[in-house]
């Protein structure tokens, strides 16, 4: 029995400590937005945030994740309106869509630290996330669009009268 803090809620799960976080999220908590792709840290489909860092949930055990702040695609924003999610729709990124939760979570960890990434920084950050439908160029565009939107929003925030 372990307690996981997922998307701001504490949830107790029953699983051996070495169970990959991925399967606990998907099966016990029935949050299926996080995907299984390779089980070996090679594709990024299972990406979630642990304490704000993008990690592969297939390579993270339940006992390692316990007590930390876990965010899945379902918790990235309350209504699915994270700037990246909006940009993903604006650029019509997903094809089959299977890799996209992982892509968005991976990208979100970049933009959280760097709202003005260069193309090279985007590629370096995203290269571990496979997309078999090859939506890479749209992913890049959507990340740039979201970054621009976030910068505009935060500038507007700065100028807001006190």
């Amino acid at each position: 029995m372990a307690t996981l803090n997922i998307n701001g809620r504490n949830m107790s799960v029953e699983a051996a400590g070495d169970t990959p976080l991925l399967w606990v999220i998907r099966e016990q908590l029935q949050m299926t937005g996080t995907k299984f792709g390779c089980g070996a840290g090679l594709c990024g489909a299972c990406t979630v945030h642990v304490n704000g860092e993008a990690v592969r949930s297939c390579q993270t055990s339940v006992s390692d994740a316990a007590g930390k702040k876990i965010t899945t695609i379902e918790g990235l924003s309350a209504k699915g309106e994270h700037p990246l999610q909006k940009a993903w729709i604006a650029e019509q990124v997903p094809q089959c869509g299977y890799c996209q939760s992982g892509q968005i979570m991976q990208a979100a960890s970049l933009l959280a630290k760097n709202s003005n990434p260069s193309k090279e920084e985007v590629v370096a950050h995203m290269d571990g996330n496979l997309c078999r439908c090859m939506t890479y160029s749209r992913i890049q565009k959507a990340i740039m669009r979201a970054a621009a939107d976030m910068r505009t929003a935060s500038n507007a925030g700065d100028r807001r009268p006190t």
Partner: peptide
Amino acid sequence: VPQLDIPDKTRGAAKYGIDVM
């Protein structure tokens, strides 16, 4: 026109075979 299946695919809400419970 925007593809009707895309919004769900940005929220982890589209259901694939592997998601069946």
